[in-house]
Design a binder for these strands. Sequence first.
DNA 1: TCAAAAGTGTTATGATTACACCCATGA
DNA 2: TCATGGGTGTAATCATAACACTTTTGA
Lengths: 236, 236
Amino acid sequence: MINKESVKIVEDTSVMDAFSIDCVVFGFDNGILEVLLVQHGEGISEGKWALPGGWIKKTESADNAAHRLLGELTGLDNIYLEQLKAFGEPDRFPLRRVITIGYYALLKREDFNVKAGFTASDAKWYKINDIPNLIYDHNEILAFSIKQLRNRVRQAPVGFNLLPEKFTLLQLMHLYEEILGIEMDKSNFRRKILHMKLLLALNEKQQDVSHRAAKLYKFDSKIYEKLTQKGFNFEF
Amino acid sequence: MINKESVKIVEDTSVMDAFSIDCVVFGFDNGILEVLLVQHGEGISEGKWALPGGWIKKTESADNAAHRLLGELTGLDNIYLEQLKAFGEPDRFPLRRVITIGYYALLKREDFNVKAGFTASDAKWYKINDIPNLIYDHNEILAFSIKQLRNRVRQAPVGFNLLPEKFTLLQLMHLYEEILGIEMDKSNFRRKILHMKLLLALNEKQQDVSHRAAKLYKFDSKIYEKLTQKGFNFEF
DNA sequence: TCAAAAGTGTTATGATTACACCCATGA
DNA sequence: TCATGGGTGTAATCATAACACTTTTGA
């Protein structure tokens, strides 16, 4: 009883509806860690807030799908992205069985402000401690992503993806404080981070600040490569 | 052109063929870290070695599917299991698009030897450094699982799942040495692990060893709970 | 001259490393 | 008695935490 038509339907359905991507996009602005949420415009969850996401195309990998979807949302194409895991509760999606692959992304707010804005008209940044009720299991995915970010940030210098190219040591410290939810000692942080020799000191200072201008640093990925080879960690 | 029949096919196909589970099962025997592989008995990859796995049923979560599949293979129902991530390259599976969710499991070899054996007739333990070519992307999944295990073992006491209930400090140290691929100092390991107060010293000693019998310890999960609350780590 | 952040220095404490050494036991 | 692993002790070094303090700069 299977004709060509039904076989075609089989393929489309299994590809288009069965796997989805959901993405937790982190940004860091004014010392605050935020997440980019979108408002659902159609269907049963109209008006509710959700993680940005979409369907995986038949010919693309999950990673590529996540990059594509984020590109469509933000206009950026070199976003730092890592898979969290698959979320596969049978009833997580009300209409049918959909397994979603969660990702988290780290982006520089300055880049986002330049590139997006008009494309992402239904998107809004929410403070990490001020997240509304999200559709489906998106609150769970978000909670998992924060746990994961806290872990990763202490093992590898992924946090740099949230900062501008050039940053001060105090900005970096505030980033760690905000992500990990702890307070740090300026002097000790300085000694520790400089001792790692992961930062490139620039011959530049902050401009237009109403206090003593701080030296600017830059994250040197070549130095990082060398350090990851022989293993290191970022405990604070 | 869609009749009932084709809709039914749609559902079955999307559920039964689209998501799979693959599991890296670790065991620790005689100081050697091993992985349980199975031989494919049918289809195009007959005779080749593979990670144990299978399909997710429509009504079960991914985690449950992994537990069920491992139960069928080993006869054990309380195996320590963690999801690795989803593997979603479009061409990873030759016949059609299948996204697999990778898991890793840690089990006590003594339990396995008692319970399995006859059910797992096509299964074989392979040393970590002696893995054959596996089907599809299973070598990649395996490599990822080892990376993940090395990470996890330094953050949480998951390694205990590979040891017998009662173990000596040296056995525990050898487990870490084998997983992390490093050499450790007996005396320093002792001080460090005992200082964590994670182990319960038993009033028992090894039996039937041809050297001075060592004190046996046991991992106390109640103490672990307390420690995870306030955060700790296992760096060596 | 004051606030605000940049940046330096100091000291006590504890962890880590690299050892040397003695102990108990079965073969 | 010897090999094998069990178990203790120690001294040098290094990292960390908690401070106090000085510097620079715009408002």
